[in-house]
């Protein structure tokens, strides 16, 4: 246990002396919220009281863009709705700092002769990564009230409600990200090349999932092709058809995509909506299924990583 605490302390000591940590936090905490306020201010000064008001209430739009709750909610949306997502970028950068750098700087021999239990080192590094990610998430959650509160002084916004639900979604997203962190550690460790590792983390899941989606779209409809017949014989056709439900990325971002339904609801866009009551969405079928899927991914990645990490020679 002492060894684990030592590894976590040492990794935090290292991370806090790396500029990248502050750049990441700065980009997340200080760039995005003012941008939201700027958009809100432009809407307020340029669009309000114009013909647009005939179609939609600008005040309402500003509320869902630049209010304290909106900034926090949009921060969460930002994590899972870009490609590659902000979450995977942050995860890859943290993994690069904690595990990729050891190879780049030829530090493994030093680390593993200073703290000699490899699984302790690996666990400590993973926990540190999750602590750093947790701090970034917490910061993203808190900048909403800070910047949004500031914005309330010059924008027609109110504080907003649903803070607890958002906190729950942030926490879930953080937990889901553990599987992504394991994946990032595994890829960087296995590939032994930091740049290649990062690129692979960004694109490999999406590429594999894209290939399957492409197949389903282009070929999958044809029930008579050989591949489908083969799957039929193996009685795997239905499993193959339902594969997208178990895709890594779609499940990984489930919590941060959850507020999207709420947004479309507010904007009266006709999509499948979810119950937006406090905590209700957290335990909806989709999220709980995603949680199980991510748990399975996490177990697979953890077993592969632990096995490979404890066996590989450090040359």
């Amino acid at each position: 246990m002492n060894g684990l605490v030592n590894v976590i302390r040492a990794e935090l000591f290292k991370a806090l002396r790396k500029k990248r940590t502050y750049v990441m936090a700065g980009l997340l905490w200080l760039i995005f919220p003012p941008l939201m306020l700027l958009v809100g201010w432009i809407l307020q000064t340029r669009v309000a009281d114009t013909f647009v008001e005939d179609v939609t209430s600008v005040r309402e739009v500003i509320q869902i863009i630049a209010s304290p709750i909106a900034i926090t909610r949009n921060g969460l949306l930002l994590f899972g709705n870009l490609s590659p997502s902000l979450l995977i970028i942050v995860v890859a950068l943290i993994a690069a700092l904690l595990i990729g750098e050891e190879r780049n700087q030829n530090m493994w021999k030093t680390v593993l002769t200073t703290q000699t239990n490899r699984l302790t080192v690996l666990s400590g590094k993973l926990l540190t990564a999750m602590i750093l990610l947790g701090l970034l998430f917490l910061g993203s959650y808190l900048v909403g009230p800070v910047f949004g509160g500031l914005g309330m002084s010059f924008l027609p916004t109110s504080f907003g409600s649903g803070w607890l639900e958002l906190l729950g979604l942030y926490s879930l997203q953080w937990l889901f990200a553990f599987a992504a962190m394991l994946f990032a550690f595994l890829i960087i460790w296995l590939l032994r090349s930091l740049p290649l590792g990062i690129v692979t983390i960004f694109f490999l899941p999406a590429l594999l999932e894209g290939i399957i989606t492409f197949y389903r779209t282009v070929v999958g409809f044809d029930r008579l092709n050989r591949f489908n017949a083969f799957l039929e014989i193996l009685q795997l056709r239905n499993t193959f058809e339902s594969l997208p439900k178990y895709f890594f990325t779609s499940n990984l971002y489930a919590p941060s995509r959850q507020p999207l339904s709420k947004l479309t609801d507010i904007l009266d866009i006709d999509v499948n909506t979810v119950d937006a009551g406090p905590f209700a969405s957290l335990f909806s079928l989709d999220l709980s299924r995603s949680a199980w899927v991510m748990l399975v991914y996490a177990i697979i990645f953890a077993v592969l990583l632990a096995w490979s990490f404890s066996r590989r020679d450090i040359n």
Partner: peptide
């Protein structure tokens, strides 16, 4: 209980010499 120096010693270049030793000190405990 073993001290090692195998091949060229390596360090975190962005840290000072003292900080590198401090990192090792924390890691070892």
């Amino acid at each position: 209980k073993v001290g090692t120096m195998i091949e060229e010693p390596s360090f975190y270049p962005y840290m000072t010499g003292w900080a590198n030793l401090k990192h090792a000190a924390i890691l070892h405990g």
